[in-house]
């Protein structure tokens, strides 16, 4: 099976600090890959390199056969196919939930208002928030805001979705609904890469776990392998820390 996302030799430095030191990693279609590791290990930076929100210093990022780093690549066109969900939701506060979801449909895909709203409502319905379409972000809970943010990405029918700590900013009681939406996406066959500390979710939803530390991938495997029988000492420490 060919990889939907293929990262080769990815390096990223901020000034003289090297955050990513040669990452090789690929994600197959319909796969849910979880990236775990101590904070500062470069997980988020790696994820952000996958749609060039962060410009890699070196290496290759190939999405669905298209090299994102190639000079002729239209990065805006590629980003439509790579949905991204942020820790801080980043909804547009001056627009309603529906406005948030339809902006790119109208401005990037050039859809009419009616068409965009139909797609937007369907996307909001998928995250269970159709009735919140006219609400502004400030009127929604954190969990609802994050679900709208997921709908915003979903509306563009991305081939892959990147989640950057999607539940870290949420109160514990709001986490469940967001994870529920992610579970539904997985069931619907969405390809996902998730950076998160939700280990229980990782354990029962992920196809594969990638453990990162100090800008490198130290180990990867199925949840059973990583949580049950970690090979690398750093992984053992990290997993041991969590289960204590």
């Amino acid at each position: 099976m060919s990889a939907l996302l293929d990262v080769r030799g990815l390096r990223k430095s901020f000034g003289t600090t090297e955050i990513l030191r040669g990452i090789d990693f690929s994600v197959a279609a319909r796969e849910l890959v979880f990236i775990i590791g101590p904070s500062g290990s470069g997980k988020s930076t790696m994820l952000r390199c996958c749609n060039r929100l962060e410009e890699p210093t070196a290496g290759q990022v190939v999405v669905d056969g298209v090299d994102l780093m190639a000079p002729g690549t239209d990065i805006n066109a590629m980003r439509r196919q790579i949905g991204m969900v942020f820790q801080a939701f980043n909804l547009y506060p001056h627009m309603t939930a529906l406005g948030n979801v339809t902006l790119a449909l109208r401005k990037v895909l050039g859809k009419s208002r009616e068409e965009a709203e139909a797609i937007g409502l369907a996307a909001l319905d998928r995250v269970g928030l159709k009735e919140k379409a006219p609400s502004y972000p400030s009127e929604l809970s954190g969990g609802q805001q994050q679900r709208v943010a997921i709908a915003r990405a979903l509306a563009l029918e991305p081939k892959i979705m990147l989640f950057d700590e999607p539940t870290s900013a949420l109160d514990p009681e709001l986490v469940g609904a967001v994870l529920g939406v992610m579970r539904d996406l997985k069931a619907a066959g969405m390809t996902m890469v998730v950076v998160s500390h939700e280990m229980r979710f990782a354990r029962d939803a992920a196809d594969r776990i990638v453990f990162m530390a100090d800008g490198e991938i130290l180990e990867q495997g199925t949840p059973a392998e990583i949580f049950g029988d970690p090979q690398h000492p750093r992984t053992r420490d990290f997993v041991g820390e969590l289960s204590r």
Binding site: N51, L53, N76, R79, M84, N90, A104, V108, R152
Partner: peptide, 18 residues
């Protein structure tokens, strides 16, 4: 306006100008 607003919009394929 926070950096996150730029990033969210750019991640949906909007250009800098949009």
């Amino acid at each position: 306006v926070g950096k996150g607003q730029w990033e969210a919009a750019r991640s949906t394929g909007l250009t800098w100008v949009q």
